[in-house]
């Protein structure tokens, strides 16, 4: 694939990440300062909060969106760095495929988790 396309998407992905990951970071790490989306109080990674976020369609969808977009952005960046080391043509293909497979595997895992967590949260398996 042409770098003209991939790089344009890399840029666009970066902007999406800026918004979504900015939100994610604010929720997780600036909670004491901002106190957003932390419905049951306590720490943002307490199970009750995880469930509360999992129940929301917004979070479930943006998790998957952020997952895909960030994986593309990160792995394309890594590919750029690796290809700048001037690998031979065989190694180059191997790098591309290895990164694609890694990306797809992580995306499948993350999507499965988000979907499952959404179900668990909606099913109210709250303890």
């Amino acid at each position: 694939m042409q770098d003209q396309k991939l790089w344009t998407w890399h840029l666009a992905a970066g902007l999406v990440i800026l918004v979504l990951l900015g939100l994610h970071m604010a929720i997780m790490h600036l909670d004491a300062a901002l106190g957003i989306f932390n419905p049951s109080g306590g720490h943002p990674i307490d199970w009750a909060n995880v469930v509360a976020r999992g129940q929301t369609l917004f979070f479930s969808v943006t998790y998957v969106l952020l997952l895909g977009v960030a994986l593309f952005h990160g792995l394309y960046g890594l590919r750029n760095i690796l290809l700048e080391l001037a690998p031979g043509p065989g190694l180059k293909t191997a790098i591309s495929w290895l990164l694609i497979i890694t990306g797809v595997a992580l995306f499948v895992l993350g999507t499965w988790a988000a979907w499952k967590a959404h179900q668990v949260a909606l099913g109210g398996v709250l303890v």
Partner: peptide, 10 residues
């Protein structure tokens, strides 16, 4: 040529 790895992308 420019849309490939010779181009400004790197």
């Amino acid at each position: 040529a420019l849309r490939g790895p010779q181009g400004p992308w790197r």
